[in-house]
Amino acid sequence: MLQSFHRTNTLSLSNQTIFITGSSRGIGREMALTCAKQGANVVIAAKSSDPHPKLPGTIHTVAAEVEALGGKALALQLDVRNEDKVQAAMEQTVEAFGGIDVLINNASAIALTPLQDTDVKKFDLIHSINTRGTLVCSKAAIPYLKNSQNAHIITLSPPMNMAKHWLKPFIPYTLSKYGMTLLTLGLAEELRVDGISASTLWPQTAIATAAVQYALDANLMKKSRTPLIMAEAALAIIQTDDLSYSGQTLIDESVLRSKGVTDFDVYLFDPASKELMRDLYLDQ
Score class of each variant (00 low, 15 high):
Phe97Leu: 14
Cys35Met: 03
Gln116His: 12
Pro227Gln: 03
Glu91Pro: 01
Ser244Asn: 05
Leu201Tyr: 03
Val102Met: 01
Gln38Arg: 14
Gln204Tyr: 10
Ile142Trp: 03
Gly179Pro: 14
Leu191Asp: 02
Gln204Glu: 15
Glu95Asp: 15
Lys72Ile: 12
Thr249Arg: 02
Gln239Arg: 13
Leu183His: 14
Ile196Cys: 12
Arg132Lys: 15
Gln248Ser: 14
Leu175Ile: 14
Phe19Ser: 06
Thr8Asn: 11
Arg192Glu: 06
Leu103Lys: 02
Ile110Lys: 07
Leu2Arg: 12
Pro172Trp: 05
Lys274Ser: 15
Asp242Phe: 00
Gly28Lys: 05
Thr61Arg: 04
Leu182Arg: 02
Thr10Ile: 00
Lys164Cys: 06
Ala96Arg: 15
Glu232Ile: 03
Pro159Leu: 00
Phe123Trp: 13
Val42His: 09
Phe5Met: 00
Tyr178Ile: 10
Thr226Trp: 02
Ala64Lys: 13
Glu190Ser: 12
Tyr245Ser: 00
Asp194Phe: 04
Ala272Tyr: 14
Ala75Gly: 10
Ala215Tyr: 04
Ile20Gly: 00
Leu183Asn: 13
Asn106Ile: 01
Val66Met: 13
Gly28Ala: 06
Pro271Thr: 14
Thr262Ser: 15
Thr93Arg: 10
Leu228His: 00
Ser128Met: 14
Leu220His: 06
Met1Trp: 02
Trp202Asp: 06
